[in-house]
């Protein structure tokens, strides 16, 4: 178990060039410490998702490295939960079976997985919808199911790729709070990709702002310490100040781009 505060994963000078010649990342550096909630914020197409895929090992950097300083084994995938922008549920399987999937792929039988499935569903508040099919759920509930699926593997690192971008604001606010509660309960590290200044300011303990393509970190803003937010946080001066600071940096970054 990694101590809180020590580096969990570092991406060192990573460059990613796709087969079609597009350079998505150039000289990307990021250290993520255990227990952090890091948001990657940047204009669309800046390679945010590519960073997540590199960390997850779904894609290899063209240059540079992704290092897990603390881990002895080669395979970090078992410690990762991944949530996509779309819920990405299997439409033919009910919620419980969808949540079972990561364990099923590791050879855990339905019976042995039962407790873990129930636990994950309870964490996201979907206990009573285990038997429902994805099409019977609302957008927010589908996303909850998707998060529950990522939680069944008890991840040390939760990678989220704009998970709430397609949801309405009221649902998103609720899921934001639920996510913060989950993180403090499970004590996992979260890397959260978003293009919303406000979402990143609300959620993160650190906001890493990326330049337009080819993406790299151009600035970091210290956020609020991990954990659930106070009820008035969204209206507090601290929050608005945070939003303003992030917006300023982001504006500078995109302004430079338009001059280039």
């Amino acid at each position: 178990m990694t101590e809180p505060g020590s580096t969990l994963i570092s991406v060192k000078n990573a460059t990613k060039v796709f087969a079609n010649g597009v350079t998505a990342l150039a000289g990307f550096d990021l250290d993520i410490c255990a227990g952090e909630f890091v948001s990657l914020l940047g204009p669309s197409g800046c390679g945010k998702s590519t960073v997540l895929r590199l960390i997850a090992g779904l894609s290899q950097p063209t240059e540079g490295r992704v290092v897990w300083p603390d881990s002895s084994g080669d395979d970090h995938r078992s410690e990762i939960g991944f949530v996509f922008q779309e819920p990405t549920l299997m439409p033919w399987a009910n919620v419980a079976d969808n949540v079972w999937l990561p364990l099923r792929l590791r050879g855990v039988s339905r019976r042995d997985a039962r407790e873990r499935i129930a636990e994950s569903l309870a964490l996201v508040g979907l206990e009573s919808f285990a038997k429902a099919y994805p099409r019977e759920l609302s957008g927010g509930m589908k996303m909850r199911a998707s998060i529950a699926r990522a939680l069944t593997v008890k991840p040390r690192l939760l990678l989220m790729d704009e998970p709430f971008a397609a949801l309405d604001e009221i649902t998103r606010f609720r899921l934001n709070d639920d996510l913060l509660r989950l993180q403090s309960e499970l004590r996992c590290t979260v890397v959260f990709v978003t293009h919303s200044v406000y979402e990143s300011a609300y959620l993160s303990s650190r906001i890493a702002i990326m330049s337009p393509r080819p993406g790299r970190i151009v600035a970091e803003v210290e956020g609020q310490a991990p954990g659930p937010r106070a009820q008035d946080f969204r209206t507090s001066l601290h929050y608005t100040d945070l939003c303003r600071r992030i917006s300023t940096v982001l504006m500078d970054v995109t302004a430079e781009e338009s001059l280039r």
Binding site: L58, D74, D75, R77, I80, T88, L101, P102, R106
Partner: peptide, 15 residues
């Protein structure tokens, strides 16, 4: 495609 990636992530121990 995302489901396929999920399979790759959870299903295939690399190396």
């Amino acid at each position: 495609r995302n489901l396929m990636e999920l399979f790759e992530l959870y299903g295939a121990p690399s190396g």
